[in-house]
């Protein structure tokens, strides 16, 4: 590729270029053994990763008779959107037959406030830890980070009791609080590290000009750290939307988030299994995080890397 960039003297063909001695990197053969092995492996692995998504889509577009006869990998002979309609509006969980739409809207009503609340709390926490250290602040921060490793199962029941005491057990608000609590370690770490990396002079100048805690946060820190807010939003939207454990513990059947309802629809023992409806429901549930993933691209990677790499 690179030798194309070498300006050719007028009248010299490719042979002339070779004769003038090697310049630039050695040209690679497109079909070298190395390339066949490299791309071959990558393509096979990519197919393996794509296969489940393909099967999901294909199955959801078939009718039940075709599924019983055919093979899960074959494309649908007759495309039907009926399974999608049914999954959305009339699939049954127990006695309720209003489809996944209820779970979808519950999930929206859980995710939006949880994302806003958890990020609001964590960003202010991170800001206080980075710029307004007080005695003992780091101790709490260490407890918070260590706490992120405690299995949720250990803390589930005490939270049930607390929520019951304040009358929020089983409600969407209760679940929002739970998500804000468990999102706190990772988000606080994210914001603390980001604010710490900002130039100290900025903060000092603002203080000299008489700005206080909230003034600096809202006028300087917030506008300057929009990228990290986007990363946090991506992290939280996918994390909260995909949550199952907290949903199943802290909500009731009529407030179940989408993942819990999906599991109940697909794994219900009553009735005939409708695989096409199940797969349509599965795609519908996976759609929100998938869209977030494909739209956000590199930011998603940055988010999970930030979420994953401690320190």
């Amino acid at each position: 590729m690179a030798d194309l960039a070498v300006p050719l003297p007028a009248g010299t063909g490719s042979i002339g270029l070779e004769a003038s001695g090697p310049r630039g990197p050695k040209p690679r053969h497109v079909f070298s053994r190395r390339n066949i092995f490299l791309y071959g492996t990558l393509i096979v692995v990519a197919l393996y990763y794509l296969l489940p998504l393909y099967v999901m889509v294909v199955t959801s577009l078939k009718g039940m008779p075709e599924i019983r006869l055919g093979n899960i990998f074959s494309p649908p002979l007759e495309i039907t959107f009926e399974p999608w309609v049914k999954a959305w509006s009339s699939a049954c969980t127990g006695l309720n037959c209003d489809g996944l739409s209820r779970g979808f809207w519950n999930s929206v009503r859980i995710t939006v406030p949880s994302v806003v609340l958890s990020i609001a709390i964590a960003s202010v926490n991170g800001y206080a830890l980075a710029n307004w250290r007080f005695k003992g602040a780091d101790t709490f921060f260490v407890i918070l980070i260590v706490g992120a490793f405690i299995p949720y199962q250990v803390m589930i029941y005490p939270i049930v009791i607390i929520l019951r005491e304040i009358g929020l057990y089983g409600s969407l608000s209760g679940l929002v609080i739970v998500h804000s609590i468990f999102g706190m370690p990772i988000l606080t770490l994210l914001f603390r590290n980001y604010f710490t990396s900002m130039p100290e002079e900025l903060f000092r100048a603002a203080r000299v000009d008489g700005a206080g805690f909230w003034g600096i946060y809202f006028r300087i820190m917030l506008p300057m750290s929009l990228p990290i807010f986007v990363v946090a939003i991506i992290l939280q939207v996918t994390g909260i939307w995909n949550d199952f454990l907290f949903g199943v513990v802290y909500t009731r059947p009529d407030t179940y988030p989408m993942t819990v309802q999906l599991n109940n629809i697909v794994n219900s023992v009553q009735g005939v299994k409708e695989y096409n409806v199940n797969m349509a429901a599965t795609i519908l549930t996976g759609l929100v995080p998938l869209v977030v993933y494909f739209v956000s691209g590199k930011l998603f990677v940055r988010g999970i890397a930030a979420g994953a790499v401690k320190g």
């Binding site: 990763y49 296969l51 995909n242 549930t285 995080p289 990677v301």
Partner: peptide, 26 residues
């Protein structure tokens, strides 16, 4: 992008897809 997209999906979705792929009959 292809290798990472499953990570965006929940364990519930993952489990259900593989339940279907590993269904002995179909």
């Amino acid at each position: 992008t292809i290798f990472l997209y499953p990570f965006a999906l929940s364990f519930i979705v993952t489990g259900l897809v593989w339940q279907w792929l590993l269904n002995p009959e179909f």
